[in-house]
């Protein structure tokens, strides 16, 4: 039995009310949407806020629809809603697929797209009960000063483990944030920082209110591939998202790849467009891109699987994702 620490539960119906609750209880408050990430973390005593501001009843955070050349995803739409949405499946099948492969069905019925964007980083030495963590003297990310992964490092290397952000990044999606300082837009590709302790640019008083995905050129395609131990419920050990603007004969104009599940933030693969631009996406080009990706990916022992195996899977999953672009 894992009991929650005590808190007061606030259920605002309007965004302004939610934001003012975050200001009112500053320093002792967290927002919660689906709760599938935060509630287990609270049960593990990784967070113990005295107040929770629930977002599921806030009207402004709902809705999936096209507007002004974008697809607007309200932050509290569930992953099931995103995966099953006719408009998402029609415009961005790779996004629907990624949302539909997060965790298991009950979790997708609860978890939200905004929550997936803000998912807490994960590590073998972090996602454990307080008793377990105490036995090891805690860790750099929470309550301690030693990183059990790197042994010497002063920087937390807990892994970004969400499925939809890499797909959103290759689709040039933008996160809309609202807070006491007003509204701002941050491209999903710039939303994350390389710090496992707090890996997003969201300020504590801010909320992700919606995600906007540009409808973009009709020639653009995206695909995604994911490695995990059990296909039914597990977090990803590696997620690859790719997008390409191509001619009918598969001549590449623009190509993007983002991998995650390795370090604290999703990594955009460098040098891909230079290799690919003007060339036909054939097996030789796919091999060259996979090799280029492998040189940039260095998994750590932050998950309880062999990092060498995870590294060996990088080119395999890059090829898998690229072949799905055809």
């Amino acid at each position: 039995m894992l009991r929650l620490p005590e808190y007061r539960y606030h259920q605002p119906r309007a965004l302004a009310e939610a934001l003012s609750l975050l200001v009112e209880h500053q320093g002792d408050v967290m927002p919660v949407a689906g709760g599938t990430d935060l509630i287990p973390n609270m049960k593990h005593r990784l967070f113990e806020p005295g107040h929770l501001v629930a977002l599921k009843r806030v009207e402004e955070l709902k809705g999936i629809h096209e507007e002004n050349g974008h697809l607007r995803l309200g932050a509290t739409e569930t992953l099931t809603d995103v995966a099953e949405s006719r408009v998402v499946r029609g415009c961005f099948p790779a996004l629907a697929e990624a949302a539909g492969h997060v965790a298991g069905p009950q979790l997708r019925n609860m978890a939200t797209i905004g929550g997936n964007l803000c998912l807490e980083t994960r590590c073998t030495y972090y996602n454990q009960t307080a008793f377990w963590r105490q036995a090891l003297g805690y860790c750099l990310k929470k309550d301690g000063s030693i990183c059990h992964v790197t042994k010497v490092g002063r920087k937390c290397v807990a892994a970004h483990s969400a499925d939809t952000p890499p797909v959103l990044a290759v689709l040039d999606a933008v996160a809309v944030l609202e807070g006491p300082q007003g509204r701002r837009e941050v491209p999903v590709g710039d939303f994350f920082v390389a710090d496992g302790i707090a890996n997003t640019r969201r300020e504590p008083g801010e909320l992700v209110t919606e995600i906007r995905v540009p409808l973009g050129p009709r020639t653009r395609r995206a695909a995604y591939a994911k490695l995990r131990q059990r296909n039914s419920i597990d977090f990803p050990l590696l997620t690859v998202a790719v997008s390409a603007d191509m001619d009918r004969d598969l001549t590449v104009h623009e190509l993007k790849g983002v991998v995650t599940g390795l370090g604290a933030r999703p990594r955009e693969l460098a040098g891909w467009s230079e290799i690919a631009r003007g060339h036909v996406l054939d097996d030789d080009l796919i091999d060259a891109l996979a090799e280029r990706a492998l040189a940039q990916c260095h998994p750590l022992e932050n998950m309880i699987v062999d990092p060498e195996w995870r590294r060996a899977m990088v080119p395999v999953y890059i090829r898998k994702a690229l072949r799905r672009l055809f």
Binding site: G35, T36, I39, A54, G104, Q106, L107, N109, M110, I233
Partner: peptide, 22 residues
């Protein structure tokens, strides 16, 4: 903590984990 599904109930027609539902 949301791994096993033994606490599954149906809320508004959808299978939901009651152990993670405040």
């Amino acid at each position: 903590k949301g791994d096993c599904g033994a606490c599954t109930v149906i809320i508004d027609g959808r299978a939901t984990l009651s152990c993670l539902t405040p």
